[in-house]
């Protein structure tokens, strides 16, 4: 019983982060048609960046976190202004998902390259935000970093839902996703929301990276895997259902944890196999309407 309980807690920890990443994908795609494939890399950048600043400049942990988050915010905002904005709004408009896909794919590789040069290839992590032994209750064990991830994911989810529901800016954000032209008709400047969301998502991912990295440690390529699970969560939510994206993210985390109990060697293979099977059985889940022969 306690084994399954611990697996569930571990799954919810990872799933909480996948859920937030999936939410990032869906929100940014709904708002501006941008698939940010670098979201996981920002998590890596937050974790290893704060560790790097701390070790290199001996700033103190809080200052190291602040410096890395500000640097990520400035970089991601500049990327939107310099790359995404001209691509989406420039004279030679390239408003295709494929082009934007490649722009953020390139960003992902760029960040990994910077990460490799700056942080090296070893597994590293910043100090835990909540140090000390794992929490124990009812025979279960939960890493404090895992508890922080779950709390942070819940707080972010509730805050975001409240923002969408109880503020006009939040409703305007939803409006951008439902009818871009209609949003412009009422005076919503979509580019502001896109830049704001792109930056906020990067900072949020970085915060999650800082929180969770003490559990497993990060290397410069870790972000790619994290982002991939977020992308899968968003895809299973057809890139337009934030609630479902969160549920799928959590489900992936749980499945990954349970499958690891059976086979650590084939854990990922089994997980991807299950995901492919779901798509084959129910392709509509991706927003695809299969054409059936008469």
């Amino acid at each position: 019983m306690s084994t399954w309980g611990n697996l569930t807690l571990a799954g919810l920890t990872a799933g909480g982060m996948y859920a937030v990443f999936a939410l990032c994908f869906v929100t940014l795609f709904r708002t501006a048609g941008v698939l940010n494939l670098a979201v996981g890399d920002f998590a890596m950048l937050g974790a290893l960046g704060s560790d790097y600043v701390l070790e290199t400049y001996h700033t103190g942990f809080a200052a190291a976190i602040a410096i890395s988050l500000v640097a990520i915010a400035v970089f991601s905002y500049a990327y939107d202004r310099v790359v995404l904005r001209p691509a989406l709004e420039g004279r030679r408009s390239t408003e295709t998902i494929v082009v934007i896909f490649f722009f953020t794919f390139a960003l992902s590789f760029f960040i990994e390259g910077v990460g490799k040069n700056l942080f090296g290839v070893d597994v590293r992590s910043p100090p835990p935000l909540w140090p000390g032994p794992a929490l124990s209750f009812w025979g279960l064990h939960l890493e404090k970093a895992g508890a922080l991830v779950m709390i942070l994911a819940a707080v972010c989810g509730i805050a975001f839902a409240a923002y969408l529901r109880f503020s006009l800016r939040g409703k305007a954000l939803s409006a951008c996703g439902q009818d871009t032209f209609g949003a412009r008709v009422v005076g919503i400047r979509q580019s502001q929301y896109r830049a704001g969301m792109f930056t906020a998502m990067a900072v949020l991912a970085a915060i999650f990276g800082i929180v969770i990295s003490p559990i497993t440690g990060f290397v410069y390529t870790t972000g790619g895997t994290l982002g991939l699970f977020g992308l899968i969560g968003a895809a299973f939510a057809a890139f337009n259902r934030p609630g479902r994206a969160v549920i799928v993210g959590l489900a992936i985390g749980l499945a990954e944890s349970y499958l690891g109990e059976f086979s650590t060697q084939y854990q990922d293979t089994l997980l991807y196999g299950a995901l492919v099977a779901i798509i084959l059985i129910r392709p509509q889940i991706l927003g695809i309407n299969p054409i059936r022969a008469a």
């Binding site: 409703k171 305007a172 009818d179 209609g182 949003a183 008709v185 009422v186």
Partner: peptide, 19 residues
């Protein structure tokens, strides 16, 4: 019309105030 189809009528009207 170009309404926001997944929002309520009231929210659509309120978004008119955004300007």
């Amino acid at each position: 019309r170009r309404l926001f189809p997944q929002m309520t009528v009231h929210d659509n009207i309120l978004l008119g105030c955004y300007g």
